[in-house]
Design a binder for these strands. Structure first.
Length: 268
DNA sequence: ATGGTAGGTACCCTA
């Protein structure tokens, strides 16, 4: 089973690129963030014609929005509110599995970016981000056991490790890489024993990015990236993890997203 | 130290 996650930054604008990516690497399940569209205006017909006839969406006007597109049917679908808001940042589906008695659950997450000032007292958006991660961690820990087969993926808007950013020293006070966010994300990870599927393949001393700002003249030349997009698995899935890919070449597309797709192959 | 670009929407917000 090939699973792809991508912050698409407008599904309507980037539908042609989504079609190309789907043709190029034929994922079984596609998880999108920042679709920026209401469910009524979601381009479902095009996506069904691409072969993804099972669609679970939760979108709103202008901001946020998540979608899961699948070639195979869902056992169940869910929409979750986080931090007291219905702002379309967390949906989940269950997929049938031959390896496990229970279905495998996929959680598609768009964690708040958190604004510019890394102080929850001064910046409501940063306070919201911290609250979101904390609540999400408690919810996962109280809802599931560590031996349940779960996948959590999406745009986490946090680059936790030193080599998940181009300069640890220069970004230590920049939202996405501050100690407080990393502490919250790591606490969430530890509560359920989540395994970082990408770092399973990429050594901690090797730089690894999934996002390059639009605000650089030449993203490749300056290479000031961050690893904001993640795929996590609970421990029972780890022996079935086959491979990964970070599709950085799509950052060079015409009208690219600032994020690139991330893929894992898991034997389900 | 600053401002750089992109998308959606409605003349400004979020990233």
């Amino acid at each position: 089973m090939r699973i792809l996650t991508w912050n698409i930054n407008s599904v309507r604008l980037r539908l042609p690129l989504l079609k190309k990516i789907a043709r190029d690497c034929s994922p079984d399940v596609i998880c999108l963030q920042e679709t920026k569209v209401t469910d009524e205006l979601f381009p479902a017909d095009d996506i069904i014609r691409m072969g993804y006839s099972h669609i679970h969406i939760n979108g709103m006007k202008s901001y946020n929005g998540v979608a899961i597109l699948s070639k195979t049917p869902f056992v169940r679908k869910a929409i979750h509110s986080r931090a007291g808001r219905d702002d379309c940042r967390h949906i989940a589906v269950q997929l049938k599995s031959r390896k496990f008695k229970t279905p495998v659950e996929v959680h598609n997450l768009y964690i708040p970016a958190g604004g510019d000032i890394p102080d929850p007292a001064q910046n409501d958006k940063f306070a919201h981000k911290l609250e979101f991660v904390e609540e999400l961690g408690s919810w996962f820990a109280s809802t599931y056991k560590p031996d349940y087969p779960l996948i959590a993926l999406g745009d986490f808007n946090i680059a936790p490790q030193e080599h998940d950013v181009w300069s640890h020293k220069q970004l230590v006070d920049v939202v996405s890489h501050t100690p407080i966010e990393i502490e919250k994300l790591t606490a969430m990870q530890d509560k359920l024993g989540w395994q970082d599927a990408i770092r399973h393949f990429v050594r901690p001393e090797d730089k690894c990015y999934t996002w390059w700002s639009y605000r650089n003249r030449d993203w490749k030349k300056s290479n000031r990236g961050r690893r904001l997009d993640h795929i996590w698995l609970t421990k029972p899935l780890l022996p079935h993890l086959q491979s990964h890919a970070i599709l950085a070449k799509y950052r060079d597309s015409e009208q690219p997203s600032d994020h690139v797709p991330v893929i894992v192959d898991v034997n389900l």
